[in-house]
Amino acid sequence: MIAPNKRLTRILKALANEHRLSLYLQIWQQQRMAVPRSECFVSDLAAKMKIGAPTISHHIKELESAGLITTQKVGKQITAAADPETHSFVLTQLGG
């Protein structure tokens, strides 16, 4: 198991990039508002942000590596979902 401070550092480093932060917040908001919870299509997020597919792919991998999201291939599409445990962990560690 990774030490809490090391885990938090990895997460905050991933969110320190404005595009990754924006992606994560969009995924989290969409997931929060959906009933039942649903994943976001990465292609839809890319279109909203007007960022190329390779760049989006890189940012998605960084968020996934930090444990902030999970991804799944659905046909030819990739979906992303925020990890609620990681979200709670960050809020707890930051005193929120």
Rank of each mutant, 00 (worst) to 15 (best):
I2M: 09
A3T: 12
A3D: 15
P4C: 02
P4E: 06
P4S: 05
K6S: 10
K6G: 00
R7E: 11
T9A: 02
I11R: 02
I11T: 09
I11G: 05
L12S: 01
K13W: 02
K13E: 14
A14G: 03
L15G: 07
L15K: 02
L15P: 10
A16I: 01
A16M: 03
N17C: 05
N17R: 03
H19N: 15
H19W: 11
R20P: 12
L21V: 04
S22A: 14
L23R: 02
L23Q: 04
L23S: 04
Y24T: 10
Y24P: 08
I27M: 07
I27R: 04
W28C: 08
Q31P: 06
Q31C: 06
Q31L: 05
R32N: 11
R32G: 08
R32Y: 09
M33K: 06
A34W: 00
A34E: 08
V35A: 04
V35Q: 06
V35W: 02
P36N: 00
S38W: 00
E39S: 15
E39D: 14
C40I: 11
C40E: 11
F41A: 12
F41C: 05
S43T: 10
S43E: 12
S43C: 03
D44S: 06
D44W: 00
D44L: 04
L45G: 01
L45Q: 05
L45M: 08
A47V: 09
K48A: 10
M49D: 08
K50N: 13
I51P: 04
A53D: 13
A53C: 02
A53W: 08
P54L: 02
T55W: 00
T55E: 07
I56S: 02
I56A: 02
S57H: 07
H58Q: 14
H58V: 10
H58D: 12
H59G: 09
E62D: 12
E62P: 01
E62Q: 14
L63V: 13
L63W: 06
L63K: 08
E64L: 02
E64Q: 14
S65I: 08
S65P: 03
S65C: 07
A66M: 06
G67I: 14
G67Y: 01
G67Q: 03
L68C: 06
T70M: 09
T70A: 11
T70Q: 11
K73F: 01
Q77H: 12
I78C: 05
T79I: 15
A80Q: 09
A81H: 00
A81F: 02
A82T: 15
A82K: 05
D83L: 11
D83A: 05
P84Y: 04
E85C: 02
E85N: 07
T86V: 15
T86E: 10
T86Q: 09
H87P: 02
H87E: 15
H87C: 09
S88I: 14
S88Y: 03
S88F: 07
F89T: 13
F89G: 10
L91Q: 10
T92N: 13
Q93H: 03
Q93K: 13
Q93N: 06
G95I: 09
G96Q: 08
G96W: 09
G96D: 04
G96K: 08
